[in-house]
Amino acid sequence: MVDTKTITVTVNNEEYTSTVNVRKNLIDYLREDLGLTGSHVGCEHGVCGACTLDMNGQTVRSCLILAVQADGMEITTIEGLPSEGIAEELKKSFAKNNALQCGYCTPGMLSSALEYLNNGGRANKEEIRRHISGNYCRCTGYQAIVEAIYDVAENGVSK
């Protein structure tokens, strides 16, 4: 028995209508059906944070949401992060602070960091650490990531 359903999702400001297998996770739909491979899959049980992205203005684990549940929703993946404002500042700050090495955690990390800053998160390293506690990074040791987010929280958007 293959149960399928037709959904309409807005991903990075573009509308897609697709028929999907109901058991398909959102992350697999984005990667396999839409070819948006920027979002990464790690653990598939909500622990590592690699698949974190924005759905209707909130971060979610896209490995714990079915594609059919995204029907009518607006998704922003790493590919859709704007090249201006806080998102751009954050990308620059990650590069400047060496806050990524292999980059596997980076899409989820940026999504969490962006939520922190958009919700008025302060330049406080303890609070930043707590907010990204759900995102694993196996390379950097986190220090550089915390610094990168801290810098943007402190300096805001330049110009």
Binding site: Q58, T59, V60, R61, S112, E115, R130, G134, N135
Partner: peptide, 12 residues
């Protein structure tokens, strides 16, 4: 509430 999981999980 802040002790439960992480923001992305509390959002759902």
């Amino acid at each position: 509430i802040p002790y439960i999981a992480h923001s992305a999980i509390r959002n759902r």
